[in-house]
Design a protein around this nucleic acid. Structure first.
Lengths: 238, 238
DNA sequence: AATGGTCTAATGGTAGTACCAATTATATTC
DNA sequence: GAATATAATTGGTACTACCATTAGACCATT
C-alpha cells in the first residue's frame, strides 16, 4: 500500500469557483446570466466576501465571467471568450525560455495544417473576410501606415485560422501572433509589395479548395520569414 | 480624431500582476524564485493585502506561480505548468466554445507537424526516451494497470514534442494532452495491443529520419481516434 | 541514538467592516 | 420635456484581526 498521494485540502474560494463551474456544466448557468452580487454570494455560501472575490477573480481569469460595476453591474457569464487563455499561454511561453525562432517554426507548422483544413471547410464568408483584409492592407501600404498594417497582417492569419471553424486552432494562432507582436514589434519589414501578390495567389487557390498548392504558397512565405528571424536573433552563430 | 478607445482603467491587482509578469518576461524572476510575503508586497506596492492576493490569485490561475503555506512558504515561480491553461480550455468546452472534436483535430494537425520536425532534429537521447516509454507501456499492459498506462500514453506524445527541441510545441502538446485526459478519462479504450506495434514501427521510421512515413503512421492512429471521438460526442447526428 | 512531542515564528487563508468609484434609475428643477 | 441633481446598487480597495499550516528548534521519552 504505497498509494499515499498527498492530501490537497480545497481552499474555500476554490470550492466556490467550482460550484459555479458545476452550474455552468449542468447548464443551470448560461451565457448572459448574471450571478448574485458579491455580498449576497458571501452570505449564501456562508463565507467572507473576500473568498467570493478570489473565486470570481479565478473565474474571470478563466474567461468564464466578466465583471461590471454600477447599479446593474455584477458578474455575467460570458460566451466563452478564449482571449484570456491566449494570455495565459503567452505567459507560460515566456517562462519556457522561448526564442523567436521557436515561435516562427511553430507557426510554420501549424499554419500549414490550418491552410489544409481551411481549404476543406472554409465558407465563402470566411474567404470574403480574408479578401477584405488584403484590400485593407493594400490601402494602408499606400498610406504608409506601417503600424496598422502590421496589425492587419497578423489579423490575416487569425482570420485564416477562423476559417477552419476550430476554436482551438484559432486560440493557438492568436497566441503565436500575440507572441510575435510583443517580442518583435520593430521588424515589420516582412511586408513588401510582394506579400499582397502572394496573398492574392493564395486566396485563388484556397477558394478552389486546392489545399496542397495553397499550403505551399503560404509555406514559402513563412519559411522565408522563419529564416530571416532565425538569423536576426542569433548574430553570433556564425 | 475618432480614436476614442474606452479608458479601461486598470485595476490595482492587474497592475500588480502585470509587474510580476514583466519581471518574468525580463528574466528578473525565474523558475524557483520566491516572491516576498504578501504583507511585504502590499507595503512595497502601497496597496492593501487584498489587492496583492487577487493579483497572486490571477497569476496562480495562469500557472505562473504556486503558493505554499507555512514557515518557508510563499509564492514561487513555477516551471510553467500548463495544466491551468488546460483547465481553462476545459471550462470553455463546457460553455460550448470548444468541442472534443476540435481538440482531437488540432492534435492531429500539430502532432503531424511535430513528427516531421522531430524526425529532422531529434537526438538519439530523445529517441531512447521514447523507446523506454513504449517498453513501460508494454509492461503495464501485462500488469493490467490501465490508469498508469493512459498516463504513459499521454507522456509519449509529450516526449515526442520534446524531441523537436521547441518549447512552444511542447507547451501546446502538453495542454492538449491535459485537456484530453481530464475531459475524457473513461475512454482509455484507445489502446489495444496494436498500438505498441504501431509505435515500434513508428520509432523505426523516426530513427531513420523518414519523416513522411513516420508522420503517416502517426496520422493513421490519430485519425482513427479523432473519428471515434467525433462520433461518440454527437450521438444524435445520424 | 532515534523517535515523537511541544513550542515558536513565518506565511498563506479567511472573516468582517468601512469606505471609494462607477453606473443606473429616479426625482427634481427649470 | 429636457437638463440636472440625488439616491441606490454594485464592484474595487483598504485595514484589521484571527485562523491554519508548515518548518525549524528544542526537549522528552524510549
Amino acid at each position: 500500500m504505497d498509494d499515499f498521494t498527498p492530501v490537497r485540502t480545497e481552499r474555500t474560494f476554490e470550492i466556490i469557483a467550482n460550484k459555479v463551474r458545476e452550474q455552468i456544466r449542468d447548464g443551470k448557468l448560461r451565457t448572459g446570466d448574471k450571478l448574485p452580487p458579491e455580498r449576497e454570494l458571501a452570505q449564501q455560501f456562508g463565507t467572507s466576501r473576500n473568498a467570493v472575490r478570489e473565486a470570481l477573480r479565478s473565474l474571470e481569469h478563466a474567461g468564464l465571467i466578466s465583471l461590471h460595476k454600477g447599479a446593474h453591474g455584477g458578474a455575467f457569464i460570458t460566451d466563452g471568450d478564449p482571449s484570456a487563455v491566449a494570455q495565459s499561454m503567452e505567459d507560460l511561453m515566456y517562462l519556457g525560455g522561448i526564442e523567436l525562432a521557436d515561435v516562427t517554426e511553430s507557426r510554420l507548422s501549424i499554419e500549414t495544417a490550418i491552410v489544409e483544413i481551411a481549404a476543406a471547410k472554409g465558407t465563402t464568408a470566411d474567404f470574403d473576410r480574408l479578401d477584405q483584409n488584403i484590400d485593407q492592407v493594400e490601402e494602408l501600404t499606400q498610406a504608409r501606415d506601417m503600424d496598422a498594417k502590421a496589425d492587419l497582417n497578423m489579423e490575416f492569419h487569425v482570420l485564416l485560422a477562423e476559417a477552419t471553424g476550430n476554436p482551438v486552432l484559432v486560440l493557438m494562432m492568436r497566441t503565436l501572433m500575440d507572441l510575435l507582436r510583443s517580442v518583435h514589434r520593430p521588424i515589420t519589414a516582412e511586408d513588401t509589395v510582394d506579400i499582397i501578390k502572394s496573398r492574392r495567389r493564395f486566396m485563388d487557390l484556397l477558394r478552389n479548395r486546392e489545399a496542397a498548392p495553397a499550403a505551399a504558397e503560404m509555406k514559402d512565405h513563412l519559411s522565408r520569414l522563419h529564416d530571416l528571424f532565425s538569423r536576426s536573433e542569433m548574430p553570433n552563430s556564425g
